[in-house]
Design a protein around this nucleic acid. Structure first.
Lengths: 144, 144
DNA sequence: AATGTTGTTGCAACTAAGTTGCATCTGGTT
DNA sequence: AACCAGATGCAACTTAGTTGCAACAACATT
């Protein structure tokens, strides 16, 4: 691992006032690298040789969610998918795109959806989450 | 049950080419009445005296989803929540509102969110799903 | 540097949503 | 009435996620 990455991870943990433990560093390292939200099991597999217990994965993700470092992006096939919460504004995260053909999910950092307006009386809307469905470039090509 | 409801349920089943069985009628009756998406367990409980097996609930919901009658609205607390798919346009369902305080979900039939635009090259967006988070009227009142 | 406290980890056993295989039953048809 | 594909119920199973508890390690204090 590059030294800058190490420092970045330490900074993240310090900012959340979480102890710099082995499992936490390994999990953040994985989350920094991945391109799309991952399940707890995938994160566990990605930490590789570190041999972290699955209970630790869940508990670490929970504490990071509470600290605001991580989001539960969505649930797919009964499994929760996690991602780092950076690049999210206060009111909106980037949309997630699910291909109806191959089932793969992609993060749409560049797609913007305007915030919902006109909530019924009494409701206060604080955040919105958008999920898009359609065809990804690969499946779109195969189909037509 | 009123005779019009019975006829409506039969019509729905016929339109999906699903046999008019007891469990199916009972499940659709529940889905017609409820105000917010329900879990399989809640639907089971709501059918009451009919005594349907939970496997039948899941299988029935699956076949109705395949037929386009039902949507998996969202997953909350590890449980899938189902609702009738009527009142949904081809490209968008009504948004669901989750209260961050009490956790209750409401259907926002009157809130509109404009469709996402500007998908990255190759992606074809067909549908979008919106989830709103904030405070419901009850919790909003208690808090301030 | 050694010590002590508090939060963290690992293990094993558990919980519960959802699934599968199979025998039985039933709605719709001939 | 008889038939049959599809629907149902039961029991056993799968698996994501949780809980209790004992051992451990990060960080602060001396």
């Amino acid at each position: 691992m590059r030294i800058e990455t190490k420092e970045k991870i330490n900074k993240i943990l310090d900012s959340a006032r979480l102890k710099r433990t082995g499992p936490r560093k390994a999990i953040i390292e994985v989350l920094l690298q991945i391109k799309r939200p991952q399940t707890a099991e995938e994160i566990l597999a990605a930490t590789g040789k570190t041999r972290i217990n699955k209970v630790t994965i869940y508990r670490t993700l929970d504490s990071m969610i509470e600290a605001g470092l991580v989001h539960r992006a969505f649930i797919s096939e009964e499994k929760c998918h996690y991602e780092l919460a950076d690049k999210c504004s206060e009111h909106q995260c980037h949309p997630h795109f699910v291909c109806t053909d191959c089932g793969k999910t992609s993060c749409m950092h560049d797609v913007s959806v305007s915030m919902a307006t006109s909530a019924p009386a009494g409701f206060v809307i604080q955040r919105q989450q958008v999920r898009l469905q359609g065809l990804c470039p690969k499946c779109n090509q195969t189909k037509f």
